[in-house]
């Protein structure tokens, strides 16, 4: 097909491929010109720091010492034997898993409800989204107060007949407290993404299934879930990336304690770099963090690939 079409192409005296690409009738260089300011900024503040992080992770850079030496993969091998780092990996896995599971399930439930013909749907959507509008720095301040030993959460638990929990100062209470606060802000964001996915499913499909006598559960299983597959991918990658990178909540609510129980990977990077001044070592941990995010995204892309 391509060979025959090139044979009948009437423009035999076209300029060379190179000339056509750069100076041809499509005036291509304008595209680059329009993109140039953004490219410059990204090069300076994204690509360069990324490369720099890779380099620093292989040096013994320290904020207090001007000289840096190349140490190869020493930082990475040391990370593998660092109990604080391994602990932060475990904490991150627990924190991220426990946070995104309820956020994704409740978010989907809310989105399904809001996708029905329900009175004051717009109002509900706005109200449910409100936690996501609260400034990120206010979230830990507010939840620190709610998780106070005499705070609202413990009062609620008492009403249900349980004893009070020392949320922020005990090893078994601190991570669940962080999880609840994070899920509170994450759920509305997941809900909104699901809702967009649900609204892109053509209503005719449901109408047709209804005519065929498919029950609600069946319609959910055979129409909603399969067609929502790409949305699941977006939500899960979004939720994981957001939760892995976030250390503001842990920093303000618990400072990583008690006994490092809430030191997640990103907090480990911050503390090692900006409190301990070990820039090279912190960058190695940051690269590990990025690898986890990228790997996770790729695995999900594969797992959720739609068979078409």
């Amino acid at each position: 097909m391509s060979s025959s079409s090139s044979a009948v192409t009437p423009f035999h005296d076209e300029p060379s491929r190179f000339r056509r690409r750069w100076f041809g009738p499509t005036q291509s260089f304008w595209g680059v010109l329009f993109a140039l300011p953004m490219l410059g900024l990204l090069a300076m503040f994204k690509f360069w720091p990324m490369a720099y992080a890779g380099w620093l992770s292989m040096t013994d850079a320290n904020l207090t010492q001007p000289s840096r030496h190349f140490v190869g993969i020493d930082n990475y091998t040391r990370l593998m034997h660092d109990t604080a780092f391994i602990g932060s990996l475990e904490t991150t896995a627990y924190y991220v898993g426990a946070t995104i599971a309820p956020s994704m399930v409740i978010g989907l439930g809310l989105a399904l409800l809001l996708n029905q013909k329900i009175p004051a749907r717009g109002l509900f959507r706005v109200l449910i989204f409100l936690p996501a509008v609260i400034p990120i720095i206010v979230v830990p301040v507010l939840w620190q107060f709610l998780f106070n030993p005499y705070g609202l959460v413990n009062e609620g638990i008492k009403k249900l007949g349980f004893g009070p929990v020392n949320w922020l100062l005990s090893q078994h209470g601190a991570v669940p407290a962080l999880v609840i606060a994070t899920a509170w802000r994450l759920t509305p964001l997941c809900m909104v993404i699901y809702l967009a996915g649900l609204q892109s499913i053509p209503a005719d499909l449901y109408a047709a299934a209804k005519v065929d006598g498919a029950s609600m559960v069946r319609r959910f299983g055979t129409i909603t879930l399969p067609l929502l597959k790409p949305t699941f991918l977006v939500v899960i990658v979004f939720a994981v990336t957001l939760t892995v990178q976030n250390f503001v909540l842990a920093l303000v609510m618990t400072g990583g304690g008690p006994a490092r129980a809430t030191t997640t990977l990103s907090l480990f990077v911050y503390q090692t770099g900006f409190i301990g001044f070990r820039l090279g070592y912190a960058c190695a941990a940051a690269i590990v963090m990025l690898s986890i995010i990228v790997l996770f995204t790729l695995v999900n892309l594969r797992a959720f690939r739609t068979e078409e």
């Binding site: 720091p49 990324m50 990336t241």
Partner: peptide
């Protein structure tokens, strides 16, 4: 896909 937290140290130095 690149969080600030990954590049915060080199960005700070820059």
């Amino acid at each position: 896909m690149l969080p600030l937290e990954v590049i915060m140290i080199p960005l700070y130095l820059t």
